[in-house]
Design a protein around this nucleic acid. Structure first.
Length: 226
DNA sequence: CCAGACGTTGTT
DNA sequence: GTCTGG
DNA sequence: CCAGACGTTGTT
DNA sequence: GTCTGG
């Protein structure tokens, strides 16, 4: 799954790479983005729109409170058929920007945090869905979820699920609101190729969502490399 | 019809 | 909202 | 995802 | 164990 990630590049670089206007967006380097925190998302249209959304989709109740816990992930294998995701998949797709994500490898009693990046170390986009929930007071909360799929060969020793990273050439397709072919959308939600990714062990400092700094992405002493 | 869930992960 | 269960 | 709290009553 | 908060 994907429950923690990083986004370190400055906003101007992200704006060039993902084709949005950076004005008004402050993006401090984030080494430990956790559920319920704001994430930088890009929506389709001309031009594309970048904004912050709360991570964890608030499933809309009938106007009162959001129902249940926020949903930080959606399964690619079932997202097409789930009622709760249906309208978001049709009309509210987005990119969630990142440059690495963390998975905890469980062995015996222990747990080792691993950081997984592109081999190039370039930033990338998770396939996301978003939602707008209006509170009784009239406030609109925009929230999003990250789609997951089965792990590729690189990630499988660490964990059996991984987030969907969109190949750069498919980002526009994912954001295209005219695209309504469910089979075509589902085919986009595939594991990213192992040979273009890398993984290494990091310090358990990343375990606490209160920690955030460059030391979180430093390779662990005598840590594993994949 | 209304009421109540709606999601994932991991662990057992 | 939209779907399932009663 | 992980970390950390988790409860009431009455009395001070 | 289970729930909430980040």
């Amino acid at each position: 799954m994907c429950g923690r990630f990083s986004l370190i590049m400055e906003i101007e670089g992200l704006a060039l790479r993902f084709e949005f206007e950076p004005y008004g967006l402050a993006q401090p380097p984030r080494y430990n983005v956790a559920p319920t925190q704001p994430v930088l998302a890009v929506r389709g249209g001309e031009p594309r729109q970048a904004l912050y959304m709360r991570w964890g989709l608030l499933m809309s109740g009938a106007g009162q409170a959001p129902s249940g816990r926020p949903i930080i992930n959606a399964r690619a294998e079932t997202v097409v058929e789930r009622p709760g995701f249906r309208s978001a998949l049709a009309r509210r797709r987005c990119l969630v920007l990142a440059d690495g994500f963390y998975e905890w490898q469980h062995d015996g009693a222990g747990r080792r945090p691993m950081r997984i990046t592109l081999a190039s170390r370039a930033p990338f986009a998770f396939a996301g869905l978003w939602n707008a929930w209006r509170s009784p007071q009239g406030d609109v909360v925009e929230s999003c979820t990250i789609i997951t799929t089965e792990a590729n060969e690189l990630v499988r020793p660490i964990h059996d699920r991984m987030p969907v990273i969109l190949p750069e050439e498919l980002e526009t397709l994912w954001l295209d609101e005219e695209m309504q072919d469910a089979a075509a959308l589902a085919s986009v939600l595939a594991p990213y190729p192992s040979e273009r990714m890398a993984a290494y062990e990091v310090s358990t400092l990343v375990n606490s969502a209160f920690n955030d700094g460059p030391e979180l992405i430093a390779p662990a002493e005598q840590g594993r490399l994949l």
